[in-house]
Amino acid sequence: MLSLIVNGSPHVCRSSAATIADLVRELDLVDKRIAVERNGEIVPRSRHTLTPLATGDRIEVVSAVGGG
């Protein structure tokens, strides 16, 4: 099982989560308008299925919210 930091909080992935795409599915964010960063680097949507996760990865998942 992978231990990650997702949006600043510890997150233990189910064993099946091996890529960013798996993590997005596990977090119920499939088809949501989000952007993902892994260890400070953007992971483009087209590469979610190709980008593996490793223990200790710092993942940021962001959305658009109201702001001025």
Binding site: N7, L27, V61, V62, A64
Partner: peptide, 17 residues
């Protein structure tokens, strides 16, 4: 619009801006 961390595991069906 502002860019903020997505709420994880709270309410997956909550409406979005």
């Amino acid at each position: 619009v502002a860019i903020r961390r997505t709420n994880i595991g709270q309410n997956p069906n909550e409406p979005s801006l």
